[in-house]
Amino acid sequence: MEIAEHQAGDVTILEIKGRIDSNAAGAFGDRLTSLIKGGRARLVVDLKQIIYISSAGFRALLVAGQLAEETNGTLALCALSAEVQRLFDLGSFTDLFAIYPSREEGLAKLS
């Protein structure tokens, strides 16, 4: 898994590439929570280039999403492929997060 970080105004975009599996979930979660704790209250996680996300990755998203909620921040997701969307639907995660079809739409909503 690779993570690239971009800033657009006060919105931070995290672009994830590869697999968010058991091996990668720790680093993925740590990056999200450290940004939120560091005061980056508006986050968009771009999942366009991920292959899949395992339950360990969903757990990391859940922890980060709950932390964002507690600190009045926003954690949004964008650009889910059909395969990744299916995993969100199976786990009933689709309703837990703001999910946008593209990065541009996510940015427009959070800006």
Partner: peptide, 23 residues
């Protein structure tokens, strides 16, 4: 299997992995 809670603050992790395998 996972019992899904649709609210973020009360959703507990767990059970999801086996749900993926079975599905």
């Amino acid at each position: 299997l996972v019992v899904a809670d649709r609210k973020l603050h009360s959703r507990a992790p767990g059970g999801l992995g086996i749900l993926f395998v079975k599905t």
